[in-house]
Simulated assay, not measured.
Amino acid sequence: MRQNTLGRGEIGVSELSFGSAGIGNLYTPVEPEQAAAAVDAAWDAGIRYFDTAPHYGIGLAERRLGEALSARPRAEYTLSTKVGRLLEPLPAAEGDDLANGFAVPATHRRVWDFTADGVRRSIEESLERLGTDHVETVFLHDPDQHVAEAFGQAYPALERLRAEGVVGAIGAGMNQTAVLTRFLRDTDIDVVLCAGRHTLLDQSALDHLLPEAVARGRSVIVGGVFNSGLLADPRPGATYDYTAAPPALLERALRIKAVAERHGVPLRAAALAYPLRHPAVASVLVGTRSAEEVRDAADMYGRQVPDALFDDLRAEGLLEGGAR
């Protein structure tokens, strides 16, 4: 599998990367053996970049990922985690965490914290859950409602940690482009993780974010390439950005699927290939919860997708004119 380097640094990532929210029991439970098998399948497919966060399953994803990778040579893979939510234990578990999207007991509550102390504490606790002494990359996680604190306290803390060699690369991860573009312009981050905004259904990252990344020699990791399901399997009831897909978007996705199939390409393969056509994109992050899903993603990544497919999508008004 192809490897790329983040920004102007030395941190390498595989072009296809493993998102761990699924093995943190996103929406439905995943058995421990199934989670371990998913990580094993990713390794067998050549994936060497694994992303996680305390938010995913109230630490479950970090623990499972660390355990599954514990027997692998640490120098052969790259880890990223995130800061911004601290996990505070509750006196007793009451109910589940499904209100936050995870089928786990509600043993902790999340506390937003983008202070310098919060950043350091979050990383220390993540390292303990992961069972490692370092992570290569740390992202500020969803600072949408905490922008001033993220820029004023959390980012400088990450910059100091990078200078100290505690982490190799720093960045921010969000579902929007405006604040990520500001991070690229106003800070010295290495990478941004942009979810859902550079896909076959939403090319808004092309307006400012991706050109800014290219101009400044920074990297973009693209998540949410299936827009939470619609581009994986467009059908009535499919989801788009975690809610029911509007009829107009479902129709658009079906039209994109028809164009792809005319070229003999599964829609999932086209959805994975599209972001990687841009020079700023270093990796596509796919959330998987089973070995079968991992193997399918690897298979789709390996498919040949002709330029003519994207030319036809533009010709039919299904891709923005400026899209590559």
Rank of each mutant, 00 (worst) to 15 (best):
E149R: 07
F102N: 00
V135N: 01
H108Y: 14
R109Q: 13
L130Q: 00
T107C: 09
G118P: 02
T115D: 12
V104C: 06
V104W: 05
F139A: 07
H108F: 12
G131S: 05
V119D: 06
T132W: 00
S122H: 03
E136A: 14
E128N: 11
G101M: 07
G95V: 09
Q145G: 07
D142M: 06
H141F: 14
A103D: 12
D97H: 14
S122I: 00
A103R: 02
A99G: 14
G118S: 07
V111G: 05
V119M: 09
V147R: 13
L127W: 01
H108C: 08
N100F: 14
F102M: 03
T132G: 02
V104L: 07
D144S: 09
V104G: 04
E125I: 00
D133C: 04
H141M: 11
R129T: 03
E125N: 15
D96T: 15
A106G: 06
L140W: 00
D113K: 03
R120A: 11
D113S: 08
E124V: 09
D113T: 04
R121A: 08
R110D: 08
T107K: 14
G118F: 00
T115S: 15
R110G: 11
P105R: 13
R121S: 07
E125P: 03
G101D: 04
